[in-house]
Structure formats: C-alpha cells, structure tokens
Write a protein that binds this DNA or RNA. Sequence first.
DNA 1: GTTTCTATGTTTAGATG
DNA 2: GCATCTAAACATAGAAA
Lengths: 228, 228
Amino acid sequence: MAKNKGELTYIEDDSKRKTTCKKRKASLVKKMNELTTLCGIEACAIIYDPNESQPEVWPSHPEVQRLISKLMEMPEMEQKKYMFNHESFLSKNLNKARDQLKRVRDENKRMEMELFMFQCLNVGCIINTSNTVDTNYLLFVINQTIKDIQWKESRHQRQHGTVVVAASTEEPLNEEVANVHEMEQANMGAMQLQDWSSDSTNDGGNMMLPFGDNSNFSSGFWPSPSFP
Amino acid sequence: MAKNKGELTYIEDDSKRKTTCKKRKASLVKKMNELTTLCGIEACAIIYDPNESQPEVWPSHPEVQRLISKLMEMPEMEQKKYMFNHESFLSKNLNKARDQLKRVRDENKRMEMELFMFQCLNVGCIINTSNTVDTNYLLFVINQTIKDIQWKESRHQRQHGTVVVAASTEEPLNEEVANVHEMEQANMGAMQLQDWSSDSTNDGGNMMLPFGDNSNFSSGFWPSPSFP
DNA sequence: GTTTCTATGTTTAGATG
DNA sequence: GCATCTAAACATAGAAA
C-alpha cells in the first residue's frame, strides 16, 4: 500500500473504500492475467463487491465454471472409481454408464462451446483461449454454425445478395469445411465494402438495433475485445 | 513486472517460470487478502498450478464453496453484466482523448453489428438485411472478428491447431478483408482438426458440471442455450 | 462521480549465497 | 531447490482537475 504503510484494516470512509476497492480490483485482475499468462497456469476469481450489482468473475464466466467443475469433480471421480472397483455387480453396467457419461459430456461440451462462441461474437474476439477451451471443438461448432448459415442463406440469395463466411484449415477434415471454398467462389456477388469508418450520415440510423439501452454491452467481459 | 518491462508472454524456461509462478502466486494471494480486508468484500480464487499436486484455493475451501454456490444461483442470461471489463485497466494507454468521440461512435456501430451477427448465427440465417443494416459494414465486422480470432488463435497453434475463417466479397475494399486471404495463406500450418468426439481422457471430465446431489449447484446455472 | 497526476511504498526478475 | 538482496518497474493513496 503506497502512502498507507501497511495499515491493513477495513477502510471506514465510504468514499475512500469505494475508490480503493475499484483500483485494487483492477490491479488484482491484472495480476491474475499476468500470472496465468506468464506461467501458463489456470486460475479464476470471483469477487463480490457490494458496489456492483453483480458479482465479478475472472477471466470469464464459462472459464470459471470450467475450473469450478474441475475442482468439484476431483473427489467425486475418485469416489466413483473406488465404488466401481469394489462393487462388482455394477461392473456389467460399466460400459453403458460410460457411454452415458460420454454423451452427457459431449452435450455439455457442445453447450459450453456454443455459449462461448456466442460470447466471442458478442464481444468480437476469442476470449482467453489459452488453456481454457478446446479450440478444435470450438472450430467444429463454428463450422457447423457456418454451414447452417450458408444453407439457410442460400435460399435468399436472390433477394438479399450473398454473404459467405468460411472456415478452413490446411487439411480440412470434413466435407463442410471443404465446401466452403466452393461456395465462396460460387457466391461471388456484386457487393462492395464501403468505408464504414467515414462520417457518412446515411447509415447511422440503420445501424441501430432496437435494444434501447446499450449499456449492457459497454460493460462487456474480460479479456478485452481489443477493438482496433 | 520488474526488470521485464511489460513483456507479457509465456515464460518458456521451466525454471524461471516455476520461480515466477511461486512468487506471483504468493503476491496474488496477498493482494486478495488486502482487497478483501481493506474493502470488506468477499472474494475467492482457484489456482491450478501443475507444479502443485492439488489446486490451490483462497481463502479456504469452504469459503470458496460458499461463494461458488452464491454465483451459481444467478441466472445465466445476466452473464454479460458481471464480466470484467478489460478496458478498466488497459485503457490507460496513449492518446485516448484524441479520437474519443470517433472511437465511441465506431464502437457502438461495431457492437450493434456484432450483436446482429450473433443473432444471425443464432437464428441460422442473415436476417432481412434490406433496410435494416449496412451489409458492407457487417462484412467488415465479420472480417474484424475473424482477424481477431486468427490473431489469438495463432498464439496457440502448437497446442490446438490452426484454423482460418474468412469472409469475402468480389471486390474487397479494405485492408482487413484483403488480409484475410494473406493470413489464410500464412497460417497454413501443420495442424489438423482433431476428432473432438473421440474418447480422449484429458478433456471430457472438465466439461462435466458435477454438481450432482449438491443442491446448491444444481439450482440452475447452466440452462440450455437452445441453439438450432 | 470520474480521470489524471505524483510522491512514495511495493513488487519482482535476476543475481548471489 | 530455497532464502536474501537489489535495481528497476509497478501500484497506489491522496490530491487536484
């Protein structure tokens, strides 16, 4: 504590406490970011600040959920293993249970990825992919979504023009990804990008989405969308 | 980072990383203690350090459990509200006031577009683009998003493989769109998508939300996002 | 209420026992 | 590996804008 020389007691003054809290929360989050980035470890934090309407989590809600799950799962899994080893009559159901578990896991993973994808799109970037999400699966989900978009969009080409979004790797493993390029060729339309950043006045009104107060979106989540 | 001047990247050297990790974990915990004490708020942290056999929790396991329960009781749709805002500690950078107005305007426009883009993905088609949105700008946003994805993704190629997502029109007018193809070329790596649905044992468990019989955790934080 | 500034205390990467 | 030391960078309480 600068200028306070180690006085580690509750700050009675409301204003001072609030200010300090805000500053220190920011610093703490920065420190967590540094720790996880520099050392490549996983960490999360939950902070309940009465000054905020909602608890603050770091680095993101899905990641916190994942780490919490990881924490909660540890003792349970050992317990299960123990039980399976000792209750022989359960062993005949083992394969069945495993399949079930796998299905549930896949479903959870899918939901997590879809939620994550939503958040990425909402914020505009991939959020803290280091050590947090299965990027391969995320890409699978994105490709699936893109495929849906393309399929549905193709029914409206004549009305609205065409937009193509494509995902690729060096060696696309599935048909969907491969077809992306074909569609990209086929759908080359007559559209041009305008300079969106100019001060043109003919677009602002159309840009507004009728969601009223946009403040929800200004308090996004962490890490930053890093808009250029 | 003393003597390291803001180089916020993974420390490759094992010994250095381990030492830094230990020091910084201690500092982080100290900071959390100061924050909670000085400001009288509740907070907890979970840290997974591969160097440690057990995950480290702060301030204590029961307290972490209690705060997690508190968090889990919140409705999912309000996630956005309690995410940290990266800008709170990163935006202290240079020439901020210079083009603040323009940035805010662009930001609003971009957020509207991103939200719109999400809605498109969520619904599965481009929604009534005529008379509602600037399609050209939508493409720009998509490209920006893609660019961000690529940039972030490129930092993890070795771990997860490479994917390039691209959007194009017949005549891309800006650098971003043009660069998409360059990056597509540049990022052609040696990676392949893995079969995400395989029985790999290193990820499935983390996806499970093992709240099971604990009513605190089963009280609803993971409702299905109802995707198509 | 917020942001900016700054003097001063704290953290920390690297070096050394 | 673990403690101690140190210069450099950082964090921050208080004040001012």
